[in-house]
Design a protein around this nucleic acid. Structure first.
Length: 570
DNA sequence: GCCGTTTTCGGCCCGACTGTTTTCAGTCG
């Protein structure tokens, strides 16, 4: 059975082919919009179709609804098959090359019979492109550059890495005299889990000065574009776009360059209906500028409350704003403790005392010491006896802790046979039990789901850590039926973790939203193995805000007393 | 192909940069 992603991919491919053939661009947008709707859907598209609700979805009307049903029934779409057969498949790959779009690719195919990237490369090297109108020597050079870049496969980088680069660029440009405001924007500001390129926005009355400094930075390896107010460069194998605007447009530009594109299209559409026009300089009624210096003002001008960057994905936030129903999102300052911490009892780098001190300096009221159980051999976690000793040490530390509380715990391994790595007797003595999968990730979906469910069903287990096991860019999530996990977690009052480590961010934003909408409580934990990693909490908060989580949805916003009540700790 | 507190027809976001052109098309975000 085809899933949501499969249907979305087919509609996107239809849009690509129609674009190559130069068909009506609004029809093309309609397919893309439908694809986006389906891709972002929390429900299974087959369920929506079964209920006859397809046409209630935004961007899905009579024609596309029929196509979805055809796909669900037969796994194929006649319209799609016909389109695919009408062009060489290599053209679809060619449009992915930077600087090449559908028009140029189709022209290359029509005029020179070029059908794939290999042929394109050969033709460009033989200087055969420059004869075509619209193509010159520079175009050939750029195409070859684009091909080698495409082949190097510049991938999206994890949020945590991109954030470090962005913060250092911001720090560098801040000192330029004409710069009055500077920040990063784009998907980084929306705290997406991976980042394709870094967007930096600056307000200055002397754009040339800023652009000069930016393109001259030592770490810049290639300048892709350099205009009067805008420039793109490559540094650290990552594209960085800089835009400079005047201060009275900073809010409008920040709104615009934060995106997402889908969110902005919706916002501009709304503005048009109200007789307004939004661009990156401001909001205009006729020639009169009515907003621009602040982001808040942009939203107010179209009658909406302020929508936080993390929500701007066209996943219902515009509707929520129209209905004055925007959630008050959780903030970093709401966090009162960390519920997943490692120490030198297993593979952590620091002692319990050191981790406690770091937690206190962050203003926390409690932490959970959850070292690995022995089955995770590489972490050389405490044996049953050593865990008992650790519990005693914690008990003593708690005696003179001026109100701060250390909770004894374990990150007990859920073994491939579904059993836990510690017996129920010792688990029941711990304050909190965190359980997680660390091995045999390749199980099929039913077995893996059953494996995790059996941990959820154990009354001693309080929290399931990193529930899908993914490592961003390194290891795919294991296959698991999240609906069953969420259902069981709700029924047993088991907490699901949002692991804040930027290499995990697991649960992801969509699963988190799903879980919390089903009434499951979330723990945002850093899984720290060293002091500095406790700062990862901000990435967890970012993901939580993308999931529309409120303070009440997250257990570690509770003050000490009510947290103890929640976990039934003496 | 979708959609409607102007509309069931006629709209559909907007502007910068590049490279090719002699005023603009294509691409990108």
């Amino acid at each position: 059975m085809i899933n949501n992603e499969g249907v979305a991919n087919i509609f996107n491919e239809i849009a690509d082919i129609l674009e190559l053939k130069g068909e009506n661009r609004f029809q093309i947008n309609a397919f893309r919009k439908a694809a986006r709707t389906i891709d972002g859907l929390l429900e299974d598209i087959s369920v929506v179709a079964g209920d006859g609700r397809l046409k209630e979805l935004p961007g899905i009307g009579e024609g596309i609804a029929k196509k979805i049903i055809e796909l669900l029934e037969g796994g194929k779409l006649k319209h799609h098959e016909e389109l695919k057969n009408s062009i060489p498949s290599g053209l679809l790959e060619m449009i992915k090359i930077q600087g090449l779009g559908p028009k140029k690719v189709y022209k290359l195919h029509e005029a020179l019979g070029i059908e794939d990237i290999e042929a394109l490369k050969a033709a460009a090297e033989d200087k055969k492109l420059r004869g075509l109108s619209g193509f010159g020597a520079k175009t050939e050079e750029n195409i070859l550059k684009g091909i080698s870049q495409y082949r190097r496969n510049i991938e999206r980088v994890p949020l945590g890495i991109a954030m470090l680069y962005a913060e250092s660029i911001v720090a560098n440009l801040k000192d330029i005299e004409s710069v009055s405001e500077i920040t990063y924007a784009g998907s980084l500001r929306r705290m997406r889990e991976t980042i394709g390129d870094i967007d930096i926005l600056v307000s200055s009355l002397d754009p040339g000065d800023v652009i000069d400094f930016f393109t001259g930075l030592k770490c810049v390896t290639d300048v892709l574009a350099r205009g009067d107010t805008k420039s793109s460069v490559i540094m650290n194998d990552l594209q960085v776009d800089l835009r400079v605007v005047k201060p009275d447009s900073f809010g409008a530009a920040l709104q615009y360059f934060t995106g997402s594109k889908e969110h902005n299209v919706r916002l501009r559409d709304l503005a048009i209906r109200k007789g307004l026009k939004i661009n990156e300089y401001g909001v205009y009624r006729g020639d009169k500028k009515i907003a621009g210096d602040s982001e808040d003002g942009i939203y107010r001008s179209v009658g909406l409350g302020y929508i936080s960057p993390e929500m701007r994905e066209d996943r219902g936030e515009i509707e929520a704003a129209i209905n004055e129903d925007l959630p008050k999102l959780i903030e970093l300052g709401d966090i009162r403790g960390d519920l997943h911490i490692h120490t030198d009892y297993s593979d952590g780098k620091r002692s319990i005392k050191e981790m406690v001190r770091a937690a206190k300096s962050r203003g926390y009221e409690y932490i959970v010491i959850s070292d690995h159980s022995p089955a995770v051999a590489i972490a050389s976690g405490p044996s049953r006896e050593d865990l008992k000793k650790q519990m005693k040490v914690i008990k003593n530390l708690n005696k003179d802790s001026d109100g701060f509380r250390i909770f004894a715990s374990t990150e007990v391994d859920i073994k491939p046979d579904s059993s836990l790595d510690f017996d129920d007797e010792i688990l029941s003595e711990l304050d909190i039990v965190v359980a997680a999968v660390h091995s045999k990730f390749s199980m099929d979906e039913d077995d893996m789901t059953d494996r995790i469910l059996s941990a959820i069903e154990n009354p001693n287990v309080d929290i399931i850590a990193h529930p899908t096991g993914r490592l961003l860019g390194k290891r795919d999530p294991y296959k698991v039926d999240m609906k069953r996990i969420i259902g069981a977690a709700k029924r047993t009052n088991t907490v699901l973790e949002l692991n804040a480590s930027p290499r995990r961010l697991d649960l992801n934003d969509m699963h988190c939203k799903q879980a919390s909408e089903s009434g499951v409580k979330i723990a945002i934990s850093t899984d720290s193995h060293d002091i500095y990693q406790m700062a990862f909490m901000k990435y967890g908060i970012g993901t939580a805000r993308r999931a529309w989580l409120k303070k009440e949805d997250v257990v570690n916003t509770k003050p000490l007393k009510s947290l103890m009540k929640f976990f039934e700790i003496e």
